[in-house]
Design a binder for these strands. Structure first.
Lengths: 232, 232
DNA sequence: ACAAAATTGGGACATATGTCCTATTCCTGT
DNA sequence: ACAGGAATAGGACATATGTCCCAATTTTGT
């Protein structure tokens, strides 16, 4: 994490996402702009929540880690999304891991400051509730999908989600970053099976594997496979 | 649904669950006590939210219904829990189905009244946020579990969840109500497979099936199977 | 009461996924 | 450069689950 002391950039993001409309008070004094690099971890299961975050640039990966070491992808976060909404009221420990997929910018507000200056602000609380409602809705949806669809579909969806919309034919290098093993855990399957499925997709000419990095050959076919299922 | 015009009972529930502590204003005038019978549906996917509910007695079953007709159990609700928290701020349509498993009592407040009298009440909003946070946490958890565990475990957990804690050895007649087919859908599996798994448990002497109703023979073994996984 | 419809039980087989294992390749510290 | 450990690729087999199908039983409408 690097702190960005750029008042203009902070103001730009606040304007871009109308952050001030979520508070009655001016919260600028309590906001810090931070940058996380690709692959960097933003928070971990078990941590005490220190900052309430607005994700204003970059894509984040949210996943759980279970006792037995297994983990599962919960969602991807794109701007504007918030981190800490689940925990900041209850005081519970953080319940998932969040990693930055590319360089991302977050605006952090210390939990104490949120409590002191926005804890009784109905505008802010309403915003948080709408957000939580949205998350609950999407996760309910993906729960069903996860259980009801095959790994092939989930993989297709995963790839589409992590590849930026623009760079359709570009190599998906993010996958190289996360190892195949890690990717298997994220998708809630075994390394062996993920390997098998990717191999099958390669045989069908939909993707290719070359020294560990995966390239999408037939983006349309992949999208077709994923169907409606999207992790975002 | 039957309306219960029993001021004393309403007051009892309010006291029992300290409902007035969730509001700054006295909300009694806007509360209606209602009763739903076993198997009765409380709300459906696609409905417009009319009431914000507190579940004060009885157990509710919350599940999704997907486009292709498949559905999946999301959670069971016991008192004190709330319904409508996901939708009341966003104005979105209801996102799941809720059925009453036994006779249940709910205190309903019209959404308009909630907005008018509690929409800016930080005490109430804080309460809702804590609740949403809790739900998001538990569903994240069960998402992982659903994906990572076998139907046998999920079935065990399901049975334990719907059988009241007291009546360990009693027939679980709720299962007779919901047909095997419905139960299979709830658990996100096929009828055939559910049947197979129940048969296996019957062979092991853990449950018995007699004209469609399931009885638990070895409650401890079932609990052992379910492990930590509980749908509540 | 009886025929039609729904529910249940289960065989046979296909597919999805997991476990175990073994080479091979790639990276990394020294 | 080299040894050792991680990451990759995939064979062989077991298990979980799905699909299709049909017979037996129960429920239901008339």
């Amino acid at each position: 994490m690097k702190r960005i002391n750029d008042k203009n950039l902070l103001d730009f993001y606040i304007g871009e996402y109308k952050l001030d409309s979520f508070f009655q008070k001016d919260m600028r004094p309590y906001m810090s702009l931070m940058s996380f690099e690709r692959g960097e971890c933003i928070c971990n299961t078990g941590d005490v929540l220190e900052y309430f975050y607005f994700n204003v640039a970059g894509k984040l990966k949210v996943y759980t880690l279970m006792e037995n070491g297994k983990s599962l992808l919960l969602r991807f976060n794109k701007p504007l999304s918030i981190l800490g909404d689940v925990e900041f009221m209850s005081g519970y420990r953080i319940k998932c891991n969040v990693d930055s997929l590319n360089e991302s910018h977050l605006i952090g507000i210390k939990v104490d400051d949120i409590h002191k200056h926005a804890g009784n602000d109905p505008v802010f609380l309403n915003f948080v509730i709408r957000n939580l409602g949205y998350k609950l809705y999407t996760i309910s949806n993906s729960t069903s999908i996860n259980l009801l669809y095959s790994l092939e579909k989930r993989f297709a969806s995963y790839i589409i989600s992590i590849s930026s919309e623009e760079s359709n034919s570009k190599d998906i290098n993010e996958i190289k970053t996360t190892s195949m093993t890690e990717m298997a855990t994220l998708l809630g399957t075994s390394y062996r099976h993920l390997n098998r499925v990717i191999r099958e997709l390669a045989d069908k000419g939909i993707v290719t594997k070359k020294n560990g990095s995966i390239s999408v050959v037939d983006y349309a076919a992949l999208k077709e496979l994923a169907g409606g299922l999207l992790y975002e």
